[in-house]
Amino acid sequence: MSQKSLAEISTPVRHFTIQLSATRRGARLARLLAERQLDEWGEAYDAAAQVVAELASNAVLHGRVQGRDFRLALKLHADRTLRIEVTDARGDRIPRLPGPVADDAEGGRGLRIVDAYADRWGLTRAPAGAKTLWAELGTRDPGVTGEGPDHGLS
């Protein structure tokens, strides 16, 4: 068996990108469109819809700037790693994984859900003062615990 080059592994073989309004409706639409796109690609990532929902919700709740949209991108790589990216307009608001959350707490669960489902996740700065939260799924057996996420939140 030949060894795959880094370009083969890192270059997406399928991709989907869409701009959506930074509203609750836009966040719901992000999840529905992600589910539809993955189904069209013949991929079954049960956790992907939940991760998209959480990242899109965070973009709407914490990354919204009046008159600016958020962007959803899905990238399926040759090794079947799915990368989900949500870019919002508030690069000045850097999310942090919260400490322990009480059962009745209203907030702070979104990134915990992403952390639970994703093999890796993190943040990168985007142009024009924006930021992209990303998550990768499918790089490990769901029952196996890896070395922990690479949050990149520095």
Rank of each mutant, 00 (worst) to 15 (best):
D92Q: 12
L97W: 10
W41P: 04
T124A: 15
D46L: 14
R68V: 04
E40Y: 06
L133S: 09
F16V: 08
G67I: 03
Y117A: 14
D92C: 09
G91D: 05
T139P: 00
V51R: 07
R80F: 11
I94C: 10
R120N: 15
H151M: 11
V86M: 00
R80A: 15
H62C: 07
A7R: 13
D88A: 09
V51K: 08
V86G: 01
A128L: 13
L72F: 02
A89Q: 05
V51M: 03
V60H: 06
G42F: 08
G148S: 10
A105E: 14
W41E: 03
L72G: 01
G138K: 03
V52I: 06
G91P: 07
D119W: 07
P12C: 09
A59W: 04
D88H: 08
R25W: 10
A130V: 02
A56P: 01
L74W: 00
K131G: 01
A118M: 02
A73D: 08
L6C: 07
G143P: 04
K75D: 15
G67A: 10
L61I: 10
A130Y: 04
A126C: 09
F70A: 04
S2F: 12
G148H: 07
V86W: 00
R31V: 01
Q66L: 11
A105I: 05
A126I: 01
V60K: 06
Q19W: 09
E106T: 14
P12A: 08
Q66G: 09
A135K: 06
P95K: 07
A105G: 03
L133D: 02
A128S: 15
G108F: 04
